[in-house]
């Protein structure tokens, strides 16, 4: 499926209410200042997700109310606090341990796809994704730095590491190890 840039988000299934974005009184403004640098981003973009009526119009009001409340507190929380990183690190560990569950359980959680689902649309996705434009050519492969290759290798190795972690986190194995101490 060849993409039409002005309607990309339609492909995602996300949508907004009809004429939703047109309602914005600031639309003109949005096209004036910083917009110039990103002409490819259109305010008409549609995604299959919708938003409540007047959501964007009331957004500032709610945001500034919240900001006023926050101003009452003098405490400033740094953007990348130690706490954030601790969260991320601990969550990453949880994620690593839990991923194998995800791989084994996905089938059970599937929504039943109706037989008459949009086969044509799915074929369009497949045609688009299997087109050659995504294949890396020799020049692109050659341009990958050692860092890029390392990152890709790391990505590929993640699953192997997950399997190892799953094995190590197996309670029976832990019990055996404890018993044999």
């Amino acid at each position: 499926m060849k993409k039409d840039n002005s309607h990309n988000n339609q492909n995602s299934g996300f949508k907004t209410p009809e004429n939703y974005f047109e309602k914005f009184d600031d639309r003109l403004f949005a096209r004036l200042s910083l917009k110039d640098e990103h002409p490819e981003v259109t305010l008409e973009q549609e995604t299959g997700f919708t938003v409540p009526e007047e959501y964007f119009n009331s957004f500032e009001e709610r945001l500034f109310d919240k900001l006023s409340e926050e101003k009452m507190e003098t405490k400033v929380i740094p953007l990348f606090s130690k706490r954030t990183w601790t969260y991320v690190a601990s969550i990453a560990a949880v994620v690593l341990l839990a991923i194998p569950l995800f791989f084994t359980n996905t089938g059970e959680n599937e929504i039943d796809i109706e037989k008459d689902l949009s086969n044509i649309e799915i074929q369009e996705y497949l045609d688009y994704f299997s087109s050659e434009e995504f294949d890396l050519n020799t020049v692109e492969f050659a341009s990958l730095s050692e860092e890029d290759i390392a990152e890709l290798e790391e990505e590929t190795n993640t699953i192997e590491n997950e399997l190892l972690l799953e094995y190590l986190s197996n309670e029976e194995i832990t019990d055996d190890l404890l018993e044999n101490l």
Partner: peptide, 28 residues
């Protein structure tokens, strides 16, 4: 896992008031 959270949420899209995509879009 965060992957499971995401998968669960995507699986619930059909019932989401603020989603009106079709089956193909859900599959994507």
């Amino acid at each position: 896992s965060s992957e499971e959270i995401k998968t669960t949420m995507v699986n619930n899209l059909k019932a989401d008031d603020y989603f009106d995509g079709d089956e193909a879009q859900i599959k994507l």
